[in-house]
């Protein structure tokens, strides 16, 4: 005899699929996709958490290997670059710790975003699931990694007796922006990389280049009078809008405005792209 379980409440009581290509219909389908994904937040959370657990299954430290390896990297790079840049550790190390941890999030997220759908092709082809859920899984997974790495920043601040002060709360709007941007990157790069398999390596090399030109390991002030040029680099603006407040600094107006402008452009482009290709992703993976 089978179980007493009745029908699962999640399953759509009414499913209508039509190829109506009008903008309104596409938008409505994409919005419904997003709403369904929100309804499945417990699944999303569990998937993201299991992704991390799986990576470290059987290891003693578990996800805290992330913390440890970040700490080792920051410690060694901090000593070398503080010497190269003629700065004191007290001045340079908090900056580097924060930069590397934040960039670690951005870089990994963009890399993972490329595999948003190709990594789960099996489940895309066997069950109907909102596509936004796969994006959310990537975002949540990377936020969990970031949370493990924040420990390093706190440790560095405590060791060096640095306290950024109440300006820290100014990072909150920036973090909100990051959250939206993260979804946008997944919904843009996910389908694009499923369709064109050349994109992930291109993205990888762009991110590597961005790491060096976006003031992650060097301080923007080291550019002297040319600091304003950095606002033309979207990676810098988006990094700085969160980093500066956490260092107790106030981001310049140029940084605020450019970060919001770049994010708005990214969000718009990615939503338009996603609602255009959402129905095709299952054929591409």
């Amino acid at each position: 005899m089978t179980t007493s379980l009745a029908t699962g409440p999640r399953q759509a009581n009414f499913l209508e699929l039509s190829p109506d290509p009008s903008f309104g219909a596409r938008e409505q389908r994409a919005r419904r996709d997003a709403v369904e994904a929100i309804g499945l937040w417990r699944l999303c959370w569990t998937l993201a958490w299991l992704d991390i657990r799986l990576r470290y299954r059987g290891s003693m430290l578990g996800p805290f290997w992330l913390t440890l390896s970040t700490a080792v990297m920051i410690g060694s790079m901090g000593v070398v670059y503080a010497f190269l840049f003629h700065m004191s550790l007290r001045e340079y190390l908090p900056f580097l710790a924060l930069s590397l941890v934040l960039w670690g999030y951005l870089g990994t997220l963009v890399g993972d975003a490329c595999a948003t759908f190709t990594a789960v092709e099996g489940s895309i082809r066997s069950v109907r699931m909102p596509f936004v859920l796969h994006a959310a899984r990537v975002v949540v997974r990377n936020i969990l990694v970031l949370a493990h790495n924040i420990v390093v920043i706190v440790a560095v601040y405590a060791l060096l007796h640095v306290w950024p002060g109440l300006r820290m709360v100014l990072a909150l709007p920036g973090l909100g922006l990051w959250l939206l941007d993260s979804f946008a990157v997944c919904l843009l790069l996910g389908p694009l990389c499923a369709r064109f398999r050349d994109i992930p390596p291109i993205v990888g090399s762009i991110m590597q280049m961005a790491f060096f030109v976006s003031g992650v390991i060097w301080k923007p002030s080291q550019l002297g009078g040319h600091e304003w040029l950095l606002a033309f680099n979207p990676f810098f603006s988006i990094l700085e809008v969160v980093r500066a407040p956490l260092l107790g600094e106030f981001p310049s107006h140029l940084v605020w405005i450019s970060a919001f402008a770049y994010s708005l452009a990214l969000l718009g482009a990615s939503w338009l792209f996603f609602l255009r290709v959402r129905g095709r992703v299952a054929f591409w993976v």
């Binding site: 029908t7 190829p19 489940s123």
Partner: peptide, 29 residues
Amino acid sequence: RSLAGIYEPQAGNVRIHGSLNALLDPNQG
């Protein structure tokens, strides 16, 4: 797969009323 909503149609309509379970793939993802 089209009835299960996995492949969205290029032409025509699919309408399903009622809860749905599709046993398509032994591993079900």
